[in-house]
Amino acid sequence: MIDWAHFTPWASLSGGILIGVASALFILLHGRILGISGILGGLLPPSAGDATWRITFLLGLFSAPLAFNALAPAGFMQMPRIDASYTMLIVAGLMVGIGTRYGSGCTSGHGVCGLSRLSLRSLIATGTFMVAGFATVYIIRHIL
């Protein structure tokens, strides 16, 4: 069943295009893959000569809520709706932190950039984390 009530095709498509534009600018201007887990993980610990670009990029990322609230015609960034308890948030955070570093990428690096450059490795990674996400939500929502 499709949840038409929450379907936001235009906002999601426009947001996706902005994400694509940012990834395009990063590879063409800076020669880098825009992958958040890799950019962040490369700062743990930071190495000389390879930290500044990561930090300036992340500062831009952190400024996004402020910019969005100032620019968005519809007003403020929507309040997130979160079902998970604090314990589950911590467990999930650890899994995402370890998993993205162990698998060398997340939704941005493998999902957007990897698929854009037709990497089989990223296609396999993206298929795997999508299926794991589908299965996890199925178990939590429909079995437990």
């Binding site: 999930a92 993205t100 996890t136």
Partner: peptide, 16 residues
């Protein structure tokens, strides 16, 4: 790595 990440993404709804 992808399995672990996907499962964590499904639990909390956040990716990095």
């Amino acid at each position: 790595g992808a399995l672990l990440f996907g499962a964590g993404w499904g639990v909390a709804g956040y990716c990095p």
